[in-house]
Amino acid sequence: MDLSEVIDENIIDLDVKGTTKDEVLRELSQRLYDNGYISDVERFVKDIYVRESMGITGAGNHIAIPHGKSSVVNKITIAVGRSDHMVEWESYDEQPVNLFFLFCVSDDEGFAQNHMRLLAELAGKIGKDSLAEELQNAKTPAEVVKILTA
């Protein structure tokens, strides 16, 4: 499984409205629910916070990679969000974020390997400053998909 198999234009929001971490997580989770990826927003958000309590998900470069590992996941994906404003987030570089990659994975142990593979692939891509800049400047969800799957 790789990024090209899980990135969906329908769950890419380049106009995230949330101004707090909680609002952003709920907004992206609602998009996942609306597109059939999860069956329960509240439970999914609760499970995100379980993972958030284990460590920092702000990766630096204004990027956050929260993880929703939950039994309410119907299909593995990564919701992508970007806001035109910065959101306070625990981050390795202590900077706020405006680009969000919300992992949506089953808590079934069989999916753990896929989760780690996807995380490694995404981290490798967004670790490049030029690609992070391309994502910050992308105009459409289709452009985001192209950048992430090239």
Rank of each mutant, 00 (worst) to 15 (best):
L3C: 11
E5V: 09
V6K: 13
D8W: 08
I11F: 04
I12A: 02
L14Y: 06
L14K: 14
L14S: 12
D15R: 11
D15P: 01
V16F: 06
K21Q: 00
E23S: 13
L25S: 06
E27W: 00
E27P: 00
L28E: 08
L28I: 03
L28P: 07
S29M: 05
S29P: 00
Q30W: 02
R31M: 04
R31W: 03
Y33T: 04
N35T: 07
G36E: 08
I38N: 01
I38V: 14
D40W: 04
D40R: 12
E42C: 10
R43C: 09
F44S: 00
F44K: 00
D47M: 12
D47K: 01
I48R: 01
I48P: 02
Y49P: 09
Y49K: 12
V50P: 11
V50D: 10
R51E: 00
S53Y: 09
G60V: 13
N61K: 14
N61A: 14
P66S: 08
H67L: 11
G68N: 00
K69V: 11
S70W: 06
V72I: 02
V73E: 03
N74R: 10
N74G: 05
K75C: 02
K75F: 09
I76N: 05
I76G: 06
I76L: 04
I78A: 11
A79M: 01
A79L: 11
A79Y: 05
S83R: 08
S83Q: 03
D84S: 15
D84R: 11
M86W: 04
E90L: 08
E90C: 03
D93S: 05
E94L: 13
E94G: 08
E94H: 15
P96F: 02
N98Q: 08
L99Y: 10
L99P: 09
F101I: 14
F101L: 03
C104I: 04
D108W: 03
G110F: 06
G110A: 12
G110R: 10
G110M: 12
F111A: 09
A112P: 02
A112Y: 10
Q113C: 05
N114M: 10
H115E: 15
M116N: 01
M116V: 09
R117W: 13
L118I: 15
L118R: 06
A120L: 10
E121C: 06
E121K: 13
A123R: 03
K125W: 06
K125A: 04
K125R: 10
I126L: 05
G127C: 08
K128R: 13
D129L: 08
L131P: 15
A132M: 13
E133C: 08
E133Q: 11
E133I: 13
E134L: 14
Q136D: 06
A138L: 14
A142L: 07
V144N: 00
I147Q: 12
L148N: 11
A150T: 15
